[in-house]
Amino acid sequence: MNLFNLFLFVGLPYIALVTFLVGTIQRYRSKGFKVSSLSSQFLEGRSLFWGSVPFHFGILVVFCGHLTAFLIPRGVLLWNGDPLRLIILQVTAFSFGLSMLIGLSGLLVRRFTNARVRMVTTRMDLLLELLLFTQTALGLWMAFNYRWGSSWFAADLSPYLWSLLSLSPDISAVSELPLAIQLHIVNAFLIFTLFPFTRLVHLLVAPLHYLMRPYQRVIWNWDRRAIRHPNTPWSPTRPKNT
């Protein structure tokens, strides 16, 4: 059992981290064309709304919540000091989790029932959706049964994750956790491992830089003024436009 725990809570996360890093970089470099959100809205628009929107906004909030608890556990604990604030946090997180679950089920149903969408569905899409569904269901189940998640995450899990990152893994806390939570953790590592091989990569190219750029874009292949200038000597590479 101990060895098994070691594999799940030490081996697996490192495998996940390495595949995640190496895999995404390699995927971006060698198969850059395939990094896309692969939207299927063009084939079916109406029911997608009821799946995609609740799911995405749900996961956005829930993911950021996990990230905050991981990065600043003390801040979260401090915030949770007041029971009212704790309840607000938990209820918000839970409702966004619920919205995620509802959205995901909508998306799954759509994938199975719409003939056109089925044509653009790969096995990996299905596997990923099932994993995410399990993850969300487990998360909601835990949040309901083992209260209060935000506090024990910050108190027990953050140190464990940090211990992994600082290369001195300490699994004493995780090995004592209830099975559902352990499953949730292992499943998370699994999703991270698969990440570079799925459509999830689109979240790394979220177009936030759009906010920064001017609306119009004109590109010149070469810097024509520089090329024609007599002071530009022959060079192995031509003046490119910036």
Binding site: F33, V205, Y210, Y215, R217, I219
Partner: peptide, 30 residues
């Protein structure tokens, strides 16, 4: 189209004014 692309995949070529979508940068934001 250029103005709406969140990825910045669409651009107008300076040389001849042709508007193109860089297929490697397009991420299907539609």
């Amino acid at each position: 189209c250029v103005a709406s692309c969140p990825s910045g995949a669409i651009y107008k070529r300076g040389e001849d004014g042709i508007v193109l979508i860089n297929q490697k940068v397009c991420r299907a934001w539609r």
